[in-house]
């Protein structure tokens, strides 16, 4: 019997990278999964591969920035599985410009995906979980929510904002026993890292499975216990000192 048997989890951005790593780790503990992303074929391939482990896995295409699509995602999840115990807000994107060159359209795209998306998904989840009097929302921020990298103003702002959203949802969910928390990963292998291998070698890098392992430890906590913050990074990554 897995540590997440009988739990229904929605994971956004689950076709690749960290989201996929969390989905595999949850699957290994017996969870029922709803995986979501925008790219239909890749999402369905991921869902089929994970379902080979014997889990109930459903792929639902949705853009987390679209209110209607997210409402439909939650409606279909409840229709299929009756409840939502865990939401992982993982879908995210980045853009690399010096602030002086950052186009407004790029700013908006990153803020909408990384911050407005978790608000839209989190609101749906809180509505359900408040009625259930239980549930857990795990937001995937970044150590960029603590200290910036250069040329990443939109990303850094979205992740600082996600910390604020986490705390606010945790406060608003508290009377109904809903736990809301944030994992802050450092460098992790994913599509976001393609073309930056030299930097990763220098700074150290984690596997998506490492984030998956901590996400399982958090998701398996009993109702009423919350790991509000979990900052995790490669030992060698420059972050602790001044810079």
């Amino acid at each position: 019997m897995g540590r997440l048997t009988d739990k229904v989890a929605i994971i956004t951005g689950a076709r690749s990278g960290i989201g996929r790593g969390i989905a595999e780790a949850f699957a290994a503990e017996g969870a029922t999964l709803v995986l979501t992303a925008r790219t239909k074929d890749k999402l369905e391939t991921a869902a089929q591969e994970i379902a080979k482990g014997g889990n109930r896995v459903k792929a639902i295409v949705a853009d987390v920035t679209d209110e209607k699509q997210v409402a439909e995602l939650f409606r279909q999840t409840v229709e299929a599985f009756g409840r939502v115990d865990i939401l992982v807000n993982n879908a995210g994107t980045n853009t690399r410009y010096a602030t002086v060159d950052l186009p407004l359209s790029e700013w908006k795209r990153v803020i909408e995906t990384n911050l407005t998306g978790p608000f839209i998904c989190g609101r749906e989840a809180l509505r359900l979980m408040s009625k259930q009097k239980s549930g857990r929302i795990i937001n995937i921020a970044s150590i960029s929510a603590k200290r910036p990298r250069p040329n990443a103003a939109a990303y850094v702002s979205s992740k600082f904002g996600l910390e604020g959203l986490t705390r606010s949802m945790a406060l608003d969910g508290r009377p109904d026993n809903v736990a809301v928390c944030c994992i802050y990963p450092g460098n992790t292998w994913s599509e976001l890292k393609i073309g930056r291998e030299e930097q990763q070698h220098r700074e150290g890098i984690m596997e998506a499975a490492d984030i998956g392992a901590m996400a399982v430890a958090i998701a398996a906590l009993p109702d009423g216990v919350n790991m509000l913050e979990c900052e995790m990074l490669p030992v060698k990554q420059p972050f602790i000192g001044r810079g």
Binding site: L171, A179, D210, G224, M227, C230
Partner: peptide
């Protein structure tokens, strides 16, 4: 103890630098 165990089971080279673990009801967030 379960979270401490999850932390030490991570591979060498991966670190949970800072973790915060509380009861959901704990007056701490606001």
């Amino acid at each position: 103890a379960g979270i401490a165990l999850a932390m030490v089971l991570l591979p060498d080279g991966v670190n949970v630098l800072d973790g915060t673990l509380t009861a959901v009801n704990m007056p701490f967030i606001g």
